[in-house]
Design a protein around this nucleic acid. Structure first.
Length: 273
DNA sequence: GGGATTGTTTAAAT
DNA sequence: GATTTAAACAATCC
């Protein structure tokens, strides 16, 4: 579930506690979350200082001393938590890093869909997933967004979820932004004016900013770096509200399968074209 | 126990 | 080749 706002919230929390601290040891409790040999990971991570904590798309990226990036993808149920130095690993922990200053980084994932990967920065652009990521929604701008989507014939929902088109959007924020803009998930950009695409951009960025303010959305698994849930799930207008009244017009929300996943929308406020 | 859940990759179709 | 669609996959929950 962690999408852009959740990963951004985690990054902000970790930045405060991990920046400037040195990785003293790494404990791999479940090697299935690795994308490389444990020895390679260890060589790239252990004994390096954490210089920065950033987010790109849904990736959490620790910038390490010596131009190395330690990246985490949380997929559905991953967590990255800042714990005290005496933290004892639990059943969900996959990787534990002990840092100077009595800090522990805990990478948890019940379902093990998530992964982590350390790379020298010069190899980042050779990582196909990273190299093909689309622009960041909060910094690309309204005109660039409209131009990028204009003329496309796939459903707007599938394009919003496509990380090559735009980075960091998942099912929650796709449904919420389409509701806010009054656009049907199956609408095709080719049928939408630049004005409507621009309005979608405004809705999308407003939803993302509000969600970041609220520390993300917690459905069942997401926690921020401090182990606290987010609050944006209390502001959902569409996601997961099938059958409940539209908060704008009162009509019952509908759900259908678009781009292979459940999409919840208001049949009255979000017309197909 | 079957269906739903999700982000990404891969394959297939257009 | 570009674009679009669909299926597959990971593991767990209810």
């Amino acid at each position: 579930m962690p999408e852009l706002p959740e990963v951004e919230t985690i990054a902000r929390g970790l930045r405060k506690t991990l920046t400037g601290k040195r990785v003293e040891s790494l404990n791999v409790l479940d090697s299935s979350v690795l994308r490389q040999d444990e020895s390679t990971l260890r060589k790239l991570v252990v004994s390096r200082v954490v210089e920065s904590v950033e987010r790109r798309a849904k990736l959490l990226m620790l910038g390490l001393e010596g131009d190395v990036v330690f990246a985490f993808h949380l997929k559905m149920t991953g967590r990255v938590l800042a714990k005290p130095g005496d933290y004892a690993p639990g059943a969900r922990d996959r990787i534990i890093a002990r840092l100077s200053g009595a800090a522990t980084l805990s990478f948890q994932d019940v379902r093990r869909f998530g992964y982590c990967l350390a790379l020298p920065v010069e190899d980042l652009q050779r990582w196909p997933f990273y190299a093909t990521l689309g622009p960041e929604p909060l910094s690309m701008g309204r005109e660039a967004f409209a131009a990028r989507f204009a003329g496309r014939k796939a459903s707007i929902k599938s394009l919003l979820l496509n990380q090559c088109m735009i980075a960091g959007i998942g099912n929650i924020y796709a449904d919420e932004s389409l509701f806010a803009a009054g656009i049907h998930p199956e609408a095709r950009p080719v049928d939408l004016s630049d004005e409507r695409l621009g309005a979608l951009y405004d809705s999308l960025t407003a939803v993302l900013r509000k969600a970041i303010q609220e520390n993300g959305s917690s459905i069942r698994d997401y926690l921020n770096a401090e182990g606290e849930p987010g609050a944006f799930q209390n502001s959902f207008q569409a996601y997961g509200r099938k059958g409940q009244p539209c908060k704008r017009c009162g009509a019952p929300l509908q759900a259908s399968r678009v781009a292979g996943r459940t999409s919840t929308y208001c049949p009255a406020c979000q017309r197909r074209r």
